[in-house]
Design a protein around this nucleic acid. Structure first.
Lengths: 252, 252
DNA sequence: ACCGTCGCTTGATCTGGATCAAGCGAAGAT
DNA sequence: ATCTTCGCTTGATCCAGATCAAGCGACGGT
């Protein structure tokens, strides 16, 4: 997405209180004093590069990770030896929540491009939440939000066709990038077609064909990793399942 | 599954400290005094019946619900008017965690058979967790566990074929029932074939055919809602994806 | 500048499971 | 006791998307 050595020490020295992501990240809604306390436990590591791991499946769980810049994918091994991509994580998003339960990471997290990551030791965070009610609430919300997101994915994988899935994926990226102050209609993909397909439960070929089709239909421009959304409202209508009239699935 | 009026007032008067589910439910690992405090905020409603709602999509979020006996399904509306079954909830399982974030329920919860349910007002629970560190930790684990479960479902819907999905579903029920002291190999389904199919992303017909096939192969007996698992280890090997050799999905 | 690798595209074919269609039997209603 | 409904099963057909196959072009390495 961008040249490597651009991220300097100054960038990673930015504390929570000055971080442009604070409204998306843990500090959301905290009093200045409390942000200060949170700030003290956050480790800021130097930039990581494509292919680096934040943690691997089977690792002991110690910290949550927050993407500051760049992007990360998480994936779990499937019994046969393949893997399931579980998510792509953009700035402001928290990684590792699923490991709190068993104290062991059940999935791996791999950096997709040069990225700055904050590390938050969980035990210390947990102690802090006990004394800062609003931070505790923020944590509950964070975990709950993740569940809600997974629920959306279940609906996508369970009920939507290929076209709807890809449209939903593009719009999700668009929306999340926009919330971080980036363009909602012009961006670069940091993941491969293969990874997109894996994530959406589709073959690479299907993803590729759909990109071509969407472009032919004037919905977007695609040039390698460079994406430009041209007709967001039509994409949105595609997600709604207006694609065809598929059988209404209900039960009782 | 059983006659209705059997559950009496005595049954629902059981406090947390006497509840046989305490090792599965919130109180896990709490000191007796703390269980007492938790116990005080839990409301025990009279038994609910098939078709009753715990909450509906759009309702204000107020409480978490714990299944004590019986079973509950949760489901979300899909844009087209159909619905996606999100889960079936057995005794000891907690419902409503996904609504903490937005403070609004994004899905509905419907009772599948006569059931006893505990209601835990969330605001009060949250206050309590701030003063009982082990309860706070328990809550984090609970939310995290839910994420882990959703992750498993993503893998199931994204990578597994029909046979693998149904085998996984049956084994999941079996395992969860067993943990609650019930038979792991002989049980009744409280949900319809349609609901199972919806949950697993399959058509009713496919579910029905697979039940027939599994029975013909000697893996289980099926008589309406009554299930007997005969060959658990073969079912387990089916889940592993040993079914056929499907293309290894991996990415760079 | 050249080469090899690898990710991506595009075309042809195949297939698992959806859809369509037609009973059947159990449970509740009158 | 009979009817009606509805959930379930089974058979026939269809199709979206997987799989197979064959280039092509970008990029990193030397």
């Amino acid at each position: 997405m961008s040249h490597q050595k651009v991220i300097s020490l100054e960038t990673i020295r930015i504390a929570c209180r000055n971080c442009s992501l604070s409204s998306l990240c843990l500090p959301m809604g905290l009093a200045p004093d409390d942000v200060e306390r949170l700030d003290e436990i956050v480790k800021r590591t130097r930039p990581l590069h494509r292919g680096d791991f934040l943690f691997r499946e089977g690792d002991r769980f110690r910290s949550l990770y927050v993407v500051k810049t760049g992007s990360v994918k998480t994936f779990a091994p499937s019994p046969e030896g393949g893997e399931q991509v579980l998510g792509f994580h953009l700035p402001g998003e928290v990684i590792g929540l699923d490991a709190i339960d068993k104290d062991i990471h059940a999935c791996s997290a791999k950096v997709l491009e040069t990225s700055a990551i904050c590390e938050v030791p969980f035990t210390r965070l947990e102690e802090l939440t006990a004394t800062i009610p609003s931070l505790q609430h923020q944590m509950y919300r964070l975990l709950s939000k993740e569940i809600g997101h997974d629920t959306d994915m279940l609906l996508l994988l369970g009920k939507k066709n290929a076209e709807e899935r890809l449209a939903a994926f593009l719009l999700s990226l668009s929306k999340r990038l926009h919330k971080r102050g980036l363009s909602a209609t012009d961006f670069y993909l940091s993941m491969s077609r293969h990874e997109i397909g894996n994530y959406l439960g589709l073959a690479v070929e299907t993803v590729s064909r759909l990109f071509t089709r969407f472009q032919d239909d004037g919905l977007m421009n695609v040039d390698r990793k460079h994406i430009q959304l041209l007709d967001v409202s039509t994409l949105e209508s595609l997600v709604g399942g207006a694609g065809q009239n598929r059988r209404q699935q209900q039960q009782s």
